[in-house]
Design a protein around this nucleic acid. Structure first.
Length: 291
DNA sequence: ACCGCACCCTGAGCGC
DNA sequence: TGCGCTCAGGGTGCGG
């Protein structure tokens, strides 16, 4: 679900609710795929600790604790990080939505998908990490412990430049779309923004990376930075699950040029947008505007 | 070193 | 109502 813009908006809005507060209690779901660090270890390490910082690296969030442990969070496809009192239908299942009176306030209460529930010593709002599909991750890093996941990341998508992208594409036979999704090359790009950037760059997603010119790489890199910045400004893309920590929806989905617009007219030329599959993932492009 | 693919998990929406 | 299918902003690990 979340790509760089959604993770960054989440960071900006949840940081004030986390930073400076001391954890009093941690409730979790049972051990699962989701927990790279088992729940009991998390509890032992986190309870009593104050949170000092919240940073973003690609699509990862990293919370710093006062004893120099770090807490790594990844939202996966359906992860949601928010505080108590938040109201949003995106936090409810379709059946729960259906049984809701039209004007009723859909206040969230923790369910089986709420893997972390953090209470603080000050008695203020709790913080929840909910993730239906459990593709998200939580991991505790000991003081000084390196993280292969973080160490693998390439240049942040907000910083990627055309020359660097061009160098990364040399001798690569993969589709340019796949290369843009490779977090070791560009950290933070995902399916929506890769499609959008390729549209703005005028390059078809299936083109081999090695056959993209330097000039095209500049256009694509410029487009990546532009769509990321613009999406952060508008609060990210809320297509099905994404909700900001305050319960609000993003608005960038209204500015999509190609993603999930199959058969709809291109805003530039009117040609029907195509949807193809590349490496098990959908890709969308305008067959007239992209070569 | 690189590439393609299977797989992890749950739910929504569709046609029948 | 229910079944079976496809689809979904993620990443890892395997064999070739």
């Amino acid at each position: 679900m979340p790509e760089l813009p959604e993770v960054e908006v989440t960071r900006q809005r949840i940081a004030p609710v986390l930073v400076g507060r001391r954890i009093a209690e941690l409730a979790t779901t049972p051990q699962s795929y989701f927990f790279l660090t088992p729940p009991n270890e998390l509890r032992a390490a986190l309870v009593g600790q104050r949170l000092l910082s919240l940073d973003r690296f690609g699509k990862y969030l990293v919370a710093g604790l006062e004893d120099d442990h770090r807490l790594l969070l990844h939202l996966g496809m359906t992860g949601q990080l928010f505080s108590s009192g938040v109201v949003s239908v995106r936090l409810l299942s379709a059946t729960a939505r259906a049984s809701l009176a039209p004007e009723a306030q859909a206040e969230f209460s923790p369910d089986d998908h709420t893997h972390l529930r953090i209470a603080f010593e000050d008695g203020g709002p709790e913080v929840f990490f909910r993730d239906v599909r459990k593709f998200g991750k939580v991991q505790l890093l000991a003081p000084g412990q390196a993280s292969e996941r973080l160490d693998r990341l390439g240049t942040d998508a907000l910083e990627i430049r055309g020359d660097e992208l061009f160098e990364a594409t040399r001798k690569r036979s993969v589709a340019i779309k796949n290369l843009l999704l490779d977090q070791a090359v560009i950290a933070g790009t995902g399916n929506i923004y890769a499609d959008e950037a390729l549209f703005l760059g005028g390059v078809r997603p299936r083109r081999r990376a090695s056959r993209v010119s330097r000039q095209e790489c500049h256009r694509i890199a410029d487009a990546i930075r532009q769509v990321m910045r613009r999406s952060i400004e508008t609060g990210g893309s809320s297509i099905s699950d994404y909700v900001a920590p305050d319960g609000s929806d993003g608005a960038y989905q209204d500015e999509r040029r190609v993603y999930a617009r199959k058969n709809e007219p291109c805003h530039s030329c009117g040609t029907a947008i195509k949807r193809i599959v590349i490496g098990q993932r959908s890709a969308h492009y305008c067959p007239a505007c992209q070569r």
